[in-house]
């Protein structure tokens, strides 16, 4: 699946929920399935400075595709990260660098990406793209 196809799949999954509670319950569940970052990487280098909940992110490249792992001490934040990672993990750096995560708006979570939410997700997206660009540069050399 392409990034776009994965985004569309998530949008239609979330389309099944009428109630915000069901949406959030699902987000929390997804967080539990996220590939967790190795404990040894939970260091200041992998910490993304958001305001309230702590988020750690790691990326490794395998056969030209990036594998992300992450964790957060807040479960809703973790769930939303898992959505992002579902979409970008196992993709090529150039595709990730171009992703715009428009699906978050479609499933009604865009608020969480606003800088005022102070949950670090904006920095999270930035960091995902930084990893992608760094790997892109490495590939070119």
């Amino acid at each position: 699946m392409t990034i776009k196809e994965k985004e569309d799949a998530l949008v239609s999954e979330f389309g099944m929920f009428d109630e915000w509670m069901d949406k959030y319950s699902y987000i929390i569940e997804l967080g539990k399935e996220m590939p967790l970052i190795d404990e040894k990487h939970k260091d200041p280098q992998h910490l993304i400075s958001g305001c309230q909940s702590r988020v750690w992110l790691n990326a490794e490249i395998k056969d030209g595709k990036i594998q992300f792992t992450a964790d957060s001490d807040a479960v809703i934040t973790k769930g939303i990260i898992s959505l992002l990672l579902k979409v970008v993990s196992n993709e090529e750096p150039k595709d990730i660098a171009g992703a715009n995560f428009g699906f978050l708006e479609k499933i009604g979570l865009k608020d969480h990406l606003s800088p005022t939410r102070a949950n670090g997700l904006v920095s999270m997206v930035k960091q995902i793209k930084l990893y992608a660009k760094a790997f892109q540069l490495k590939n070119m050399n």
Partner: peptide, 12 residues
């Protein structure tokens, strides 16, 4: 439980 999680759901 992280305060942020509680605050987010209360806001809903």
């Amino acid at each position: 439980i992280h305060p942020y999680d509680i605050g987010t759901l209360l806001d809903q």
